[in-house]
Design a binder for these strands. Structure first.
Length: 482
RNA sequence: GGUCCCAUCGUCUAGUGGCCUAGGACAUCACCCUCUCAAGGUGGAGGCACGGGUUCGAAUCCCGUUGGGACUGCCA
């Protein structure tokens, strides 16, 4: 007995969506649970109007980033066109299909007040032949019902009467999603169809097609298990939309989310590991994941929680790892890929050793790797990037602060240049002006780093060196006087 | 409108008839730690949508109501 064969079948019509990523992940879990499991990537590119090759690259690279490597594929649905055409003609030959040249308006007008949804079956018995306007419709059965047994939800039944004679191919013979998907799943011997809840209404039709194909092709293939995952929603509880919501996986990568954190978070949407733990690696997920444990209700994609998780993962990184993983944001010129956000410093200004020294202090302060540059830019730039509001408040409009800075130039000129000595020196400096350390460090921090927040000040000063620190304080005093 | 799905703190969830005085996590609030900001520590507030049943016993089972969602394409 071979293992499960699952597929992730996105259509390349936009950025790689977080909801798609979650579907892919759950498929991947199921495949990896069995040593013989197979995870297939199939690009569903039959909608030539909207597909773009660049989106295919996006899907592949995002999946690669997340560590979900397909065992087979990427296949192109379009490469399977001959099989689709063959399925179409055998279904037609077996009487499952008929031609229909009704336009949407004609159908609506004819139905009038009739509230039954879908096509009214007008062309069912007209025995039309192929033409430039005749689409292929499936002769849906009437009476009785069809039961979808769903591994997540249990049995869901649909009355045959609500399944209309749906279109399976355009007049050109171009096969549409419902059929193409089934033909490919049969060819790939898919055992589990794990996809978003939005496909649940398609499922009875696809089962009908599957059975029709069993008959028409003379080859009976076991119907796969189906599992429909709850949708991901936004704060308004609407399905995440490519237009309104930040759903592009690529964007999260660019912002400095770690793939392992992202995968962990995705796994938590609609599922949870055993016990009171949430931070789990993918091996644990693979081991524990069961489709029957997946939640039935929609989940809100909470970026705040994602960010928190990411911070946890960042802090858990060994220091060298952290430094290395910062490179797309800190030294993109040596990195295998670069963030769209370039650092404010140049290749020549960046000092790897200096960054390595400040890194441990930065590591525990950031939730996103893209937050790193703003935290350390003062170490590499010739002059700090000033936060004007902070400068005005802490230095320009504060004469005591300026007095403190003036004294600092003198004291810092002769102190031992170490973080602890600078710390003690600043305490004394503050005391001489009735300022506690909290107050005393602020103008120095602002003068030297340009900001009021950042890594611990005295370690920063030590790294910067006496000459730079003194000249920055002088520059700040000059700037305040201007 | 029709079909289908769903319903535990603001959010993600644990919970499969007694272990529930409903647990954890994010967010939030307070305090502690502290050179800023974080991180960390301690504590607090906060939920079974509602109404009926079934049962000795219901967050858990059944029915109804209400509310939300998906779908309703010659898209996928």
């Amino acid at each position: 007995m071979s293992g499960p064969r699952v597929r992730f079948a996105p259509s390349p019509t936009g950025f790689f969506h977080v909801g798609s990523a979650r579907s892919a992940l759950f498929n991947w879990f199921v495949a990896r649970q069995d040593p013989e499991g197979v995870f297939i990537l199939r690009i569903e590119d039959t909608d030539t109007e909207r597909n773009r090759e660049e989106w295919v690259d996006g899907i592949v690279s995002a999946m690669n980033w997340l560590g979900m490597h397909p065992d087979e594929g990427p296949f192109r649905q379009s490469d399977n066109a001959p099989a689709h055409a063959h399925a179409l003609s055998s279904l037609m030959a077996a009487g499952y299909l008929y031609f229909c040249d009704c336009t949407g308006e004609v159908v609506t007008a004819r139905k009038g007040a009739d509230k039954t949804p879908g096509y009214d079956g007008f062309c069912r018995d007209r025995a039309l032949g192929p033409s430039a306007t005749a689409a292929y419709r499936f002769r849906a059965p009437s009476g009785g019902e069809i039961v979808v047994s769903d591994d997540v939800r249990g049995d869901v039944s649909f009355s045959h009467d609500v399944i209309d004679d749906f279109v399976v191919a355009k007049p050109s013979g171009a096969v549409l999603f419902a059929l193409a998907n089934v033909v490919d799943d049969r060819a790939d011997r898919i055992t589990h169809v794990i996809r978003g809840e939005e496909h649940l209404p398609n499922t009875p039709r696809q089962i009908l097609l599957w059975e029709a194909l069993d008959e028409a092709s003379g080859e009976k293939i076991a119907i796969p298990h189906y599992a429909h995952l709850p949708v991901l929603v936004n704060e308004q509880r609407k399905k995440l939309s490519k237009r309104r919501d930040p759903v592009a996986v690529e964007m999260y990568r660019d912002q400095g989310y770690l793939p392992e954190a992202f995968v962990n978070y995705l796994a938590l949407l609609g599922w949870s590991p055993r016990g009171d733990v949430e931070i789990v690696d993918s091996d644990t997920c693979i081991q524990q994941f069961r489709l029957s444990d997946v939640s039935h209700s929609p989940a809100f994609f909470d970026v705040k929680k994602l960010a928190h998780l990411n911070g946890e993962y960042i802090r858990a990184l060994p220091l060298e790892q952290f430094v290395q993983r910062c490179s797309p944001w800190t030294s993109p010129w040596t990195s295998p890929w670069r963030s769209e956000q370039a650092p404010p410093w140049s290749d020549a200004q960046f000092d790897e050793d200096r960054f390595a020294k400040i890194a441990p202090l930065v590591q525990e302060r950031v939730a996103l790797l893209s937050d790193v540059p703003a935290m350390v830019d003062f170490l590499f730039l010739d002059a700090p990037l000033f936060d004007d509001a902070a400068f005005d408040k802490t230095i320009r409009r504060d004469s005591v602060a300026q007095e403190l800075l003036t004294k600092a130039i003198e004291k810092f000129g002769e102190v031992d240049w170490s973080a602890t000595a600078l710390h003690d020196c600043t305490i004394l400096l503050g005391e001489s002006l009735q300022l506690n350390l909290r107050k005393a460090q602020a103008p120095i921090r602002c003068a030297v780093t340009g900001r009021l927040v950042g890594p611990p000040l005295f370690e920063s000063l030590e790294l910067l060196g006496r000459d730079v620190v003194l000249s920055r304080i002088e520059a700040a005093l000059t700037k305040a006087a201007a």
